[in-house]
Write a protein that binds this DNA or RNA. Sequence first.
DNA 1: AATTAAATTTCGCCT
DNA 2: AGGCGAAGTTTAATT
Lengths: 266, 266
Amino acid sequence: MANDTVPDFKPLAVLVNPNVAEAEKIAREAVSQHKMLLVSGNCSVRYQGRAKSQLEPGERVLIIKQDGSLLVHRSVGYEPVNWQPPGCIFHTQMRGNILEVHAVRQKPAESVKVSFDRILMVSALSLEDSGEFSLYASEEDMQKAILCRPSLLEEGFKPISYEKRVQPGFVDVYGVDKDGKLVVVEIKRKTAGKNAAIQLAKYIDAVKSRADREVRGILAAPSIAKEVQRTLETLRLEFKPLDPKKCAETLRRSRTTRLAEFFVEK
Amino acid sequence: MANDTVPDFKPLAVLVNPNVAEAEKIAREAVSQHKMLLVSGNCSVRYQGRAKSQLEPGERVLIIKQDGSLLVHRSVGYEPVNWQPPGCIFHTQMRGNILEVHAVRQKPAESVKVSFDRILMVSALSLEDSGEFSLYASEEDMQKAILCRPSLLEEGFKPISYEKRVQPGFVDVYGVDKDGKLVVVEIKRKTAGKNAAIQLAKYIDAVKSRADREVRGILAAPSIAKEVQRTLETLRLEFKPLDPKKCAETLRRSRTTRLAEFFVEK
DNA sequence: AATTAAATTTCGCCT
DNA sequence: AGGCGAAGTTTAATT
């Protein structure tokens, strides 16, 4: 069939109750095009690698992701019954009337073989997903937490304003330390990179040019990239570890105890 | 619509590119009928509980299982980006043109809300799955391992036969101990329950009635249920811990290194 | 029910 | 690339 040699690039392919050979075609294309593949049907699974297992026939859901990870889910349980972490090479083939999906990984050398003799549904998906995932607290939450309890940043810190407009943009938090020195705070939710340091330096310059006195710059983030540490020293900036989890707890506590009404949400 | 009040019990429902309200109907029925639900589409996710997280919009796959577990999978990564272990209560609703799937768990109090504004595919599945899952070794492998290296059972044990036919069925392994006493071995791959003890007792009786001399009965399994321990004592049977992992290693070694038979481990 | 220990742990950060 | 520690860990077994 000419169709067999011309893979189509539809973003979404779904077959319901297909015969096994039809499903194999979808699976093969999905794997080669690095789409996500969903297959539900009757299968057995053999795994060999760090451990070894055998799963007798039954109806399950197979998921293959574009990064080369594999999941076999039964009808119950949070964890997959069989799986492989990202980095597998996949191969599909018909063996008689059985669809075999083979996943191979090296280091450690492992293999998972899923054999379907009946397919309920097969689906190949091109998923567009650039949405950010933030755990514990958003950057905004961390900002609120510092405003709510300034000692999270350092003892004696007093916030003056937040999202203060300066030349290059907005300063996350702006205040004075226990000695009355101006403090500019830049917050990052993840490990602070070079950009964060540079951004902070620009804010400092902008504030200095208007205040004409000493200004401390503090980069507050859960951690800092090693190489940026030296950048900070060069720029005479400081780093303060700030745990998003702690921020979230602080916020939650301050909200429940009704003390946070001063700080308008969003 | 009358149809709305009469849920159908088809074993397999699939909609491709449905409108969100159609998807909600499938999702609601799947949840109420404790089927497995697969939804792929554009969604955002909010989680609050032991921790707290926010996932900005993007295309993902949602899985809800009949035991009340929930998984949200992105296009990459072995782990779900959001999840709930088994035991959730689900609630679906339309909020404007958004499908909200809400999962609530208590102890710990947690909630996950998945909001879809576009559905690629929704599927409700009744999965039949009674297939056994065996890790490291099947019962047969454990049997072979004992035959291959009898010391796994006990020092001085000598197998005579396996799958020996007696009245009630087949004895897994049959042999003599270091003192020449007859030994009947019953093997279980998982924690041995009452049935295993009773089965073994029947075999013993059968063998005794023919041999008319003392017969030891040994239940070999990775572990034994607490209450069965006393049953064993009453029946004058013995329990021997037998680890499937060790059996698998033994088998593998005996297959690969033909010379290792001399060197008894441990 | 609470605690402990293992997992084909996975994952990220650091050396 | 290998090692160490944390995880919304989960899961099973034990007290």
